[in-house]
Design a protein around this nucleic acid. Structure first.
Lengths: 342, 342
DNA sequence: CAATCAAATGACAGCGCTATCATTTCTTGG
DNA sequence: CCAAGAAATGATAGCGCTGTCATTTGATTG
């Protein structure tokens, strides 16, 4: 119920509120001694600036919005942790806005959010980051935004992401180096850009080692566990079987493991399984799933960084900032060298 | 970049800004015709009130905070969807604050958040809802809050939750009605209040049907998948085995399934397994897990409802509001009647 | 139809801060 | 030691709304 205002701090420090404001906003032209005096008074009074007032009077709202419409709670959760931690470090706060990319009035909803909240920036996760109506609304209002792992129209705005192709490439190489030659691949949802990138990495790795991609071992999935199950059954019910299957995401990899289970194929001895995303389930299932960890936390925190520093608000030499973060290949128990006796 | 203010609306409607304000805030004493005139002008101008200004001038901030420190992304995600949907319906927004219940300066952090944001209310999820420092900070600032499924000190503040005991009771009854007599139970983490409630329901159901709880079939788990695995091994490696195991949560149930797998016991034919929480993994594993679904979305939305209507701000007859929502028993493929031949 | 009172509307201050511009204080060189 | 410019500080006007209280309008009565 406290209500310590900037005026109180000014009074205690024996200075004008403007000087206090300068110190609080790290503005130049304040003597060191004065700065200390202000800081001490603020600390003594446990002063907390009123966001509404700052926002109303000034140009910044100290609010970053996070828009999502994502079927994966774990992904969103990591994004939030990364974003929130970066925001808090600079006195910003995070508001979350679940949006429905299927909705008709999406554009109006987004416009409403932007103008009532006057957000300083917005972080967009897939698939919202590829929704033209959302991007248009954001651009029309002049709100800076950063896209996380966008699929399309990459040069349209600032973005952060990771190198999906190289990650898939390296995971595949791991499998090959274990001794696998016949490796199956399950594609992700066709509407998702990562689908092609990951497949590309797979193919490149195979080719680079002089291996051939058997089309019978490549199936089109939908990123869902069920689709992984179905694809795996289709692949494994053939006379010739691969000794390893690399699924484009963990959910599908879980489906693959379930299918193997049903066919009495033991993982990893008779079939190695690799996933992508490092979802919580990957380390919960038995055996633990080998997978690729996206640097979700870091991507989100980098996105906020760009927004807060306002780097995301200006083009440099005709292009927007774009950052690729490092992924991590995590080999667990669902992969091993193939058994010689087939 | 639009900047339609209340003044613009007033001008267009030919009324004072105060009258416009009245309409926008659903205040009484406005003629029907006047109200329509304002609404129409606002619509024509696509007016969006400025939250900062409303908040600075008035008593409300239109901001609800969600505090969490939860290891389960799926839970938090559902909470957010429920909370956000209720908030949006009333022009409120949700800010999220991941907090660290282990941190030393937690109290200061919470105080800071409250006073800069001037939140109209806060929703607390476990385990934050049981952290005394957080509750104290909230109470000291006079910020209304609602606890979701609190463990301790139930009468201290408004809360929403579900009847864990009855849910466990009904799930157990389902198992018994299938024909199971020897049923194992894995307790949750001893620090978690739900642990006892769920166990209580289990015991009550057994007793009510004249069955005896075999202490050798009851083990203390920790809510983790690993602990479920360990407890299941301990239970199943005895000369006498139960035909079903009811784990206090899904993660442990997954561990039970993994243990059964390793012992070559097929689920559900040789061992029925039931969980609690309906995590995403429950419908991903094979066979799909029978479990209890918490009404997370509804609880969160009810929590916001209490905050927005300000019911959470006042005691009635010496007690705070408290709402128990309906759970759902979901029987899937991990349970079936016991096979006669043991 | 004037008197009375409730309902409807409006004028205006001020929420706590930042932005602009004026003023004061400090440096520095001749 | 003073002028001149730079650096530091302060006075004041809003930002867009809500709260308070004054004023106007309309309904109701004898």
């Amino acid at each position: 119920m406290s209500a310590v205002t900037i005026t109180d701090v000014a009074a205690r420090a024996g200075l004008s509120i403007k000087t206090v404001s300068r110190v609080l906003n790290n503005e130049p032209n304040v003597r060191e001694k004065t700065r200390d005096r202000v800081l001490e008074a603020a600390r003594a009074l446990d002063y907390q600036p009123n966001l509404s007032a700052r926002s109303l009077a000034g140009a910044r709202s100290f609010l970053i919005g996070l828009f999502f419409d994502n079927p994966s709670p774990a992904y969103v959760y990591d994004v939030q942790l990364g974003a929130a931690s970066r925001c808090r470090a600079s006195g910003y706060h995070l508001t979350i806005e679940p949006v429905d990319t299927q909705a008709d009035d999406l554009e109006r909803v987004v416009r409403g959010i932007i103008s009532t909240l006057r957000l300083d920036g917005v972080v967009l996760t897939p698939p919202v980051c590829d929704d033209d109506r959302v991007l248009r609304a954001l651009e029309a209002s002049g709100t800076p935004y950063v896209r996380m792992s966008p699929d399309r129209d990459l040069g349209r705005a600032p973005r952060v992401g990771m190198d999906d192709t190289r990650a898939a490439y390296e995971m595949t190489l791991n499998l090959i180096d274990m001794g696998h030659v016949a490796i199956g691949f399950i594609l992700g949802h066709p509407d998702h850009g990562a689908t092609n990138l990951r497949y590309k990495g797979f193919v490149e790795a195979m080719t680079s080692r002089g291996l051939v991609v058997n089309p019978a071992f490549v199936k089109q999935g939908l990123f869902s566990s069920q689709s992984g199950f179905d694809c795996a059954e289709a692949i494994l019910n053939q006379p010739q079987r691969p000794t390893a299957i690399f699924a484009s995401n963990d959910d599908m990899a879980l489906g693959v493991m379930a299918a193997a289970n049903r066919l009495k194929l033991s993982v990893p001895d008779q079939l190695s399984v690799a996933g992508f995303d490092n979802t919580p389930a990957a380390s919960t299932v038995w055996p633990h799933l080998s997978t690729v960890a996206q640097p979700i936390f870091n991507m989100a925190s980098a996105a906020c960084e760009l927004l807060i520093s306002r780097e995301a608000a200006v083009m440099v030499e005709g292009t927007w900032v774009s950052q690729l973060m490092d992924f991590e290949i995590i080999m667990r128990d669902s992969t091993c060298p193939p058994t010689p006796a087939l």
